[in-house]
Design a protein around this nucleic acid. Sequence first.
DNA 1: CGCGACGTTGACCTACCTCAATTGGCGTGG
DNA 2: CCACGCCAATTGAGGTAGGTCAACGTCGCG
Lengths: 279, 279
Amino acid sequence: MPFTELLNTLMPPAERMRWEACLARHAQDYARNSDLVREGAVPEKMHIVLAGWAQRYKQLEDGRRQILGFVLPGEVCNLDLFTLMRADHSIAAVRTLTVAEIDRDEVERLLLDCPHLARILCLGEIIAKSRQHEWILSLGQRVAIERVAHLLCEIFERERLRGRVRGQRCDFPPTQAQIAEAVGLTPVHVNRMLHELRRGQRVEIANRRLFVPDFDALAQVATFDARYLHGGEAEQLPARASALFDKDAPAGVRPPPLGAPPSSSYRRRPHPPSQAQAR
Amino acid sequence: MPFTELLNTLMPPAERMRWEACLARHAQDYARNSDLVREGAVPEKMHIVLAGWAQRYKQLEDGRRQILGFVLPGEVCNLDLFTLMRADHSIAAVRTLTVAEIDRDEVERLLLDCPHLARILCLGEIIAKSRQHEWILSLGQRVAIERVAHLLCEIFERERLRGRVRGQRCDFPPTQAQIAEAVGLTPVHVNRMLHELRRGQRVEIANRRLFVPDFDALAQVATFDARYLHGGEAEQLPARASALFDKDAPAGVRPPPLGAPPSSSYRRRPHPPSQAQAR
DNA sequence: CGCGACGTTGACCTACCTCAATTGGCGTGG
DNA sequence: CCACGCCAATTGAGGTAGGTCAACGTCGCG
């Protein structure tokens, strides 16, 4: 498993074992749709997803609910634990879910003992923020079919980076209603979009599994650009993360994206060719 | 000015002066719509808004643009500087803008010398994240009039927390087209929503100024709940922030919100008749 | 074998978009 | 001081993406 090997590279075996032992010791199961963290509560424990998916969400008083993002196996739900503020959103199990629950003291000890681990978790937070930004772009600007396709691309690519895609397939537990809550559409309309994608040979979802025969084709309908997931940056983590904590700074290597000057019309606004100059 | 006094409480005068001197020394002007930070670039300097507004945004290849948030005077644009990754979004001037530009070395020295400052900036980042979550909720679930009203509520409340509201009025530089890019609507439709809000005596926008005669009424239209802005948490900052860096942990005091259980299968519950009209 | 959750489909409706023209404010140059 | 020109705001008419409602199919499971 490439990701596992990668982790070995990034974390000394001692840290790695300490971490995994800790996870194993605190495993905990949740039933589908039950909350791990409730908005407004002061979080007591840090949650790490071991198996299954979790979903972050917020809701309005009248019940409208928006999913902010999915937490996949191996990812941390709430590092924000340490801010000690009340949670600004809830976290629930998408389906049957196993997490490790580690309380504050232990997390603290763990992070002190495992500097590499701390860096990896920090990088995870930064990438999560980048995903939030893309999520906003999606909700605000993409049309229905792009939104759905984009979500599938994101999931598939994240799973791929973790080495959990085989034969163009990966796990995909959410129901269509949950997809709908994630992309801000109606379950009915999500169903139609999935149907359309299926007709076009873009995706197949069955038995909680996602099948993507031609990723590039799907990415094209989604206007998906994987850069925001910072895939492959983990390899550069040691250098970069050390900059976070130590001093000097070798930057990652990556071609800058185009600053495409737009088209025409009202909404798709031609924003003036802005130069990044002062004065 | 209450906010200034607050800062004095939070930061020893020495730190405070060091910080402000630093800001003053590096002032820099930008023309409306010019970029301070371009997506994909490695940020060289940290930007702090001194006067005017900045906007974070992302765009699609075809020109569709989504504003991720506004940066108000006194706020920091990109603390993420230290991650040393390429910027995942661009930042531009809403209108004529003055910022302080501080390069990495100096920021580093500053933060080492001013631990209180560092804590305040960290808290700012956390609150920014909370705002992002609310922004997602808005784009995904609120209808047009709620979205626009919610944006105005957020701005107004943030300005109020900073002590910049007088006589129910505060600065409001963005054009309707920029509002549209922020809330994911068309400029035309934003115009109509503003018109409706004006007819209902909810807001008045003129001469780059926002007037809110009855905040609660506006908040009701928007389903706005100020909690996510963490107003008043700055007062608790010393205690809380120290927990971030030191050890033990007095939590903030704040009533938990309701955790409305999920409803039926379908999406839009009959949201309360948002009567923003004649009244 | 019957219930309950999920997926699917059709008919219809409306919130929001598109296109297009007009108005008003304001800075600039004559 | 006025006329021009530009940009933002405004308004109307008509179109469509996506929502709503409601029924039916299907699968898993006790």
